[in-house]
C-alpha cells in the first residue's frame, strides 16, 4: 500500500495540520510516512500545500509529483492540482469554496461542501477535518480512530479545548454521503 497525497488551500485553512494529523495517525499505525511542506516564497493569503506519503515500505523522496490523492480546499488549488492527480486517483474538492468541480473522467472525484458543513458545527476552520474524515471513508488508508487519536499530539496544547470539535468534524466527514 502506498498513497501520495497533496493537501492544498489558503494559508489559515489548516492545510499543514491536515498533513500532520494524517502523518501522525500513519506513524501510530506502524506505516512509513513522510510529510513535506511547501516552503517556497509563499504570499500571505496565497496557496500553501503539504505533501504526505504513507507506505508499507521505505519512502525515498518525500516530494509528491503526481498525487494518488489530491485534496483542494480552494479554487487556486483546484486549478493548480486538478491535472496533476494521477489516472485512477482521488480528487477531493471543497465545493463550498471552489464553486466548480472537476471535469476529469479518469479519476475518482469527491465533492464535499466542507466549509458549509463546518459552519454547521459552529466553526468554519473545522473544514479541514471534515475533508480528512471524508478521505478515510473513501479510501481505506488508516483507521479513522487513529486520526482521532492523533489530534492531541498535533494540536498545540493551548488549543486542546478544540479537540472535541475537531473529532466531531472528522466523524461528520467520515459519514458524509455525497449521493
Amino acid at each position: 500500500m502506498r498513497e501520495d497525497i497533496i493537501f492544498a488551500g489558503f494559508g489559515g485553512q489548516g492545510i499543514m495540520l491536515m498533513g500532520k494529523a494524517i502523518s501522525y495517525a500513519a506513524m501510530s499505525s506502524g506505516k512509513f510516512v513522510t510529510w513535506m511542506p511547501s516552503y517556497g516564497a509563499e504570499v500571505r493569503g496565497g496557496t500553501a500545500h503539504s505533501m504526505v506519503i504513507i507506505s508499507d515500505s521505505y519512502i525515498g523522496s518525500p516530494i509528491v509529483r503526481d498525487p494518488s490523492i489530491g485534496v483542494v480546499m480552494n479554487k487556486p488549488s483546484l486549478t493548480k492540482f486538478e491535472s496533476k492527480v494521477r489516472k485512477g486517483g482521488l480528487l477531493v474538492i471543497n465545493k463550498s469554496i471552489t464553486g466548480t468541480g472537476s471535469t476529469r473522467d479518469d479519476i475518482d472525484i469527491l465533492e464535499i461542501p466542507a466549509t458549509e458543513m463546518a459552519s454547521g458545527l459552529g466553526n468554519l476552520r473545522a473544514a479541514n477535518m471534515i475533508a480528512l474524515g471524508a478521505i478515510l471513508a473513501r479510501r481505506e488508508i488508516l483507521p479513522v480512530q487513529a486520526l482521532m487519536d492523533s489530534l492531541e499530539f498535533v494540536i498545540p496544547e493551548s488549543r486542546h479545548p478544540m479537540i472535541p470539535l475537531n473529532r466531531e468534524a472528522i466523524k461528520k466527514g467520515y459519514e458524509y454521503d455525497p449521493c
Partner: peptide, 10 residues
C-alpha cells in the same frame, strides 16, 4: 539540505 530540514518522518 532543504528537504531534510523541512520534512518530517518518525
Amino acid at each position: 539540505d532543504g528537504i531534510l530540514g523541512q520534512m518530517m518522518e518518525p
